[in-house]
Amino acid sequence: MTDAANPVAGLEPSASLSVEKVLSVRHWNEHLFSFTITRPASFRFRSGEFVMIGLQGEKKPLLRAYSIASPAYAEELEFLSIKVPDGPLTSRLQKIQPGDDIYLGRKPTGTLVADALLPGRRLFLLSTGTGLAPFISIIRDPDIYDCFEQVVVVHSVRRVSDLAYREELESLLDGDPLVDEQAKAQLTYIPTVTREPFRTTGRIEKLMEDGTLFAGRVAEPHRFDPEHDRLMLCGSMAMIKETAEMLDKLGFTEGSNAKPGEYVIERAFVG
């Protein structure tokens, strides 16, 4: 039984769920936080995949799909979440503390993985809000820099304080034990803010149209090329829909684990 005074204590594992310990919690602002939990020795995943996590509900576990923000080799698992005051899960999840128990699904899956893309030269990771999470995993995986000559992370948010992992990304993962040198040579970070003053403003679609997406360190051409460019999209339904339609018109094809293509989205999140 769950302790009424501590709703995240006394969880019981099952065939599909393990029970892990919360290791750390980081509150980015009043509606965004990230946290790390223990990783079972048997838990294997590909950088960019998602898994079910959650807490105990009234009669059964209350679970939601979360992209894993840590790379596949990490000893702990990291997640990025919004805070929804009346959300069935996030209203409670945002209150977790180190030492609390949490459910972890035993079977990660997903299409935001390098395996679902054809070989290419440039990889664009386009995200809004917490859609950044799987890309934090991917850019800390050494294998991605062997697959692509350049990796471009684009993160669109409403407010400057919503730019989670901004310091790490602006430093190009300085000091990372495995990808420090590769990231400095091959990684580009483009943050953009839509509702506050910032050096880059506007939605991702605007950055495509005015060329901002291809400025600075980004190698030519200053347009998307289906022969050499590969893309992953994660975040708002509007961004994914508009960008996918644009890519389709340019001759890109959506990929999957069964049939790799030029771009991928996470179907589990967009329906």
Rank of each mutant, 00 (worst) to 15 (best):
L23I: 05
S24M: 00
R26Q: 10
R26G: 07
R26C: 08
R26K: 14
H27G: 01
H27W: 07
W28V: 09
N29T: 00
E30C: 06
L32N: 00
L32A: 05
L32S: 00
F33V: 06
F33R: 11
S34K: 09
S34E: 07
F35E: 06
F35Q: 05
T36F: 11
T36R: 13
T36S: 12
I37S: 13
I37E: 12
T38M: 05
P40G: 06
P40A: 11
A41C: 04
A41Q: 12
A41G: 01
S42E: 15
S42K: 15
F43E: 08
F43W: 15
R44P: 02
R44G: 00
F45I: 01
S47L: 03
G48M: 09
G48W: 11
F50C: 02
V51E: 14
V51M: 14
M52Q: 07
M52K: 09
I53L: 15
I53E: 08
G54H: 00
G54E: 04
L55A: 03
Q56G: 00
Q56M: 02
E58H: 10
K59T: 04
K59L: 06
K60S: 03
P61Q: 04
L63E: 02
L63Y: 00
L63D: 03
R64C: 05
A65Q: 10
Y66A: 05
Y66R: 03
Y66S: 00
I68R: 10
I68P: 03
S70H: 07
S70R: 01
P71K: 06
P71T: 02
A72M: 11
A72S: 14
Y73E: 15
A74E: 08
A74H: 09
E75F: 03
E75T: 02
E75C: 01
L77G: 03
L77C: 04
L77H: 02
E78S: 07
E78M: 03
E78I: 00
E78F: 12
E78K: 07
F79N: 07
F79Y: 14
F79G: 05
F79W: 12
F79V: 04
L80M: 13
S81V: 06
S81W: 13
S81H: 12
I82S: 15
I82C: 13
K83P: 12
V84N: 09
V84T: 12
V84F: 13
P85A: 14
P85V: 12
D86L: 02
G87V: 07
G87C: 11
G87T: 12
G87K: 09
L89K: 07
L89H: 08
L89G: 03
T90P: 05
T90D: 07
T90V: 01
T90I: 04
S91E: 14
R92W: 14
R92L: 08
R92H: 13
R92C: 03
